[in-house]
Every structure is written in C-alpha cells, then in structure tokens.
Simulated scan of single mutants.
Amino acid sequence: MNIAIIGAGALGSVIGFHLAAGSNVILIDLWAEHVHAINSGGLRCLIDNKERVVTLSATTDPSGVEPVEVALITVKAAQTAWAAEVAAQVLTTDGVAYTLQNGLGNVEILSARLGKQHVGQAVTTLGATILGPGYVRVAGLGTTTFSITPALHLAYAIADRFHASGLPAAVSTDLNRMVWSKLLVNVGINALTAILRVPNGALATTPTARNLVRKVVEEAVAVAQAAGITLNLTDPVAETLAVVQATADNYSSMLQDVLRGAPTEIDTINGAIVREGARLGVPTPCNAMLCELVAALEETAPLRVPA
C-alpha cells in the first residue's frame, strides 16, 4: 500500500515516522525547510526522551508523487482546501483520503472536491509537538480510529499498518460520537491554553482555570445534546480534565499556532460550537468569547510585545 501524509506538522510527522519502517510513505507539506531537513538528514523523533531517526521521503510538490491508495489529511483547518487539491492529484481512482483533523467541517470541504466516495473520517488521540525542522516529539501514543466508510477494506488495511508500526488503531461504524467527544475535549483545552500561553497541565492547577474549562465544556455538551449527539464521555468535564493531566507537558496545537503567529483552528473547534448553538438556539457565550479572543490574538500577532 502506498500512503501519502498530507500535512507534515507535528501529527503528520509522528505518523510518518512510525509508518516509514513498513510502508511506502511520503510526506507532503508546504514547509520547505522541514521537507529539506527530512530529505537530507532523516526525520528525527523524540520518544520517551530518546531520539531516533528514520529515512523518509518528503516533498512540497505533489505532481511527481506516485499514486497512493490512502491519503492521511493532517493539515490545520486553514489548509484543508489545499489538502483536498493535493489529494485529488495523488489518490488512485479508488483511493480514500482520511481526515484526522480537529473540529467540524473538514469532511465537507474534502468531499466537495473529491466526492464522498473518496473521503473517510478518522479520530486520533495521538499527541505530538514540532521541535524544529525535521524534528518532532511524541507526546502520547493515543489510538487512531478509522471509519468503515467509504471503503471497509482500506479502513482495516490502514489500521493494520498503524498496529504494525506501533501506533494503536481501530475501525468503527460510528465515528460521529467520537468526533464530537474529541471536539468537546479540544473545546476545553485548545483555546484556553493558547490564550493563557500554558501547557495543558496548567488548566488543572488553579480553580479559575478549571472553572473556565467547566464552563466552555458544559456549553458544548448542551449543544451536543440539542443536536441529538450521543457522546462517548460519561462526565465530559472530568474527562477533559483527565486528558489535561495525562498530557500535562504537551503544548496544544492551538498554542503552537499562536506561538508561531500562524492561523489557528478556532473556527472549527469553539467556533463550531458557537455556530451549532446559534442554529439550535443554545447559548454559547463563553465559547463565543474565546473565539473572539483567539481571533484578536491572530490579528495582533505582528504587534505583540516581546516577553
């Protein structure tokens, strides 16, 4: 099986690092310095404070990529349209692009370009951080679950490749509840860590931060209930705080974006809750405020006072 990973950020790089040993894998990304570092010196990965290196192909130009049966979409939401165009170039006629992205709305963008028969959903709890060009750190080997649609055989095939590479994986008939359950956890972590400029664990260390987590997650739960979504979470607030503590040293993806001055995924995470809340008549004032604050962080990045 040929596999393309479209988006060689933290998540895509960690997956590529693991899959490289037993699969024909190529990373596709616009970050030329990262691509060059991988091609010239391999992809370095820090796992449990031990550094390993694998040889892996990477490119910024998909035009010369050999056709692939599976494309894993691991870009941020702002690049989904670009990823769809890349997938259209590299997928075989019966290939499938699985989105492992955060939030809501990415499947629709991919399907509009590729057709529903070529788009699958995946949910991952893998944690990763980019340390520099060609260098990534594993923050947690969580499970990646693939939808059985639109191609059952490919879902099992890619899950098997994950397993063989040391990455936990599963296949499921009901990804919707998993997507929403992960969304609720991201709602409670990403924006707050980005605004406060703290690693995940800091959200559990003070009563004020914990209360903010509770407020935004409870709003999201109310929206999910109004939408008729059955969640995998018995106690969403407690389970979000458990994730916070389990990934205490990790920098959330949104915090990493803010620190780089890059666009965030606020619109597909907290913004998705606000939009669904408005559609369903559920108030979401805390999530709306977080959206505005993160948008303001993005807009004022060039004016930021140095620490």
Rank of each mutant, 00 (worst) to 15 (best):
3 I>Y: 08
15 I>P: 01
19 L>R: 11
19 L>Q: 08
23 S>T: 15
27 L>K: 06
30 L>V: 14
31 W>R: 06
33 E>R: 12
34 H>W: 05
35 V>D: 10
36 H>V: 09
37 A>D: 11
37 A>H: 08
38 I>E: 02
39 N>F: 03
40 S>V: 09
42 G>L: 09
43 L>W: 10
48 D>S: 14
53 V>Y: 02
55 T>R: 14
56 L>H: 13
59 T>S: 15
62 P>D: 09
77 A>Q: 14
79 Q>H: 15
80 T>P: 01
82 W>E: 04
86 V>L: 00
86 V>T: 09
87 A>V: 02
89 Q>M: 07
95 G>T: 01
97 A>I: 02
99 T>L: 13
101 Q>I: 03
106 N>P: 03
107 V>H: 12
111 S>F: 02
112 A>T: 13
113 R>T: 15
115 G>D: 08
120 G>W: 09
121 Q>N: 06
121 Q>Y: 05
122 A>C: 06
131 L>M: 15
139 A>C: 14
140 G>S: 07
141 L>C: 01
143 T>M: 11
145 T>R: 14
146 F>E: 08
148 I>K: 13
151 A>G: 03
154 L>K: 15
157 A>K: 12
158 I>G: 10
162 F>K: 11
162 F>Y: 14
169 A>K: 11
171 V>Y: 08
177 R>T: 13
177 R>A: 09
179 V>N: 04
180 W>Q: 12
182 K>D: 05
183 L>Q: 10
184 L>C: 06
185 V>S: 11
188 G>C: 10
188 G>Q: 02
190 N>T: 08
192 L>T: 01
193 T>L: 04
194 A>K: 04
194 A>R: 06
194 A>Y: 04
196 L>G: 00
197 R>Y: 00
198 V>Q: 08
204 A>D: 14
204 A>P: 07
209 A>P: 03
209 A>C: 04
209 A>M: 10
210 R>H: 01
211 N>M: 13
213 V>E: 01
218 E>A: 11
218 E>N: 15
218 E>M: 12
232 N>Y: 04
235 D>F: 07
235 D>K: 09
239 E>A: 04
240 T>P: 02
245 Q>S: 14
254 M>R: 05
259 L>Y: 00
272 A>N: 12
278 A>K: 13
283 P>D: 10
287 N>G: 11
291 C>G: 05
295 A>G: 15
299 E>T: 12
303 L>V: 00
306 P>Y: 07
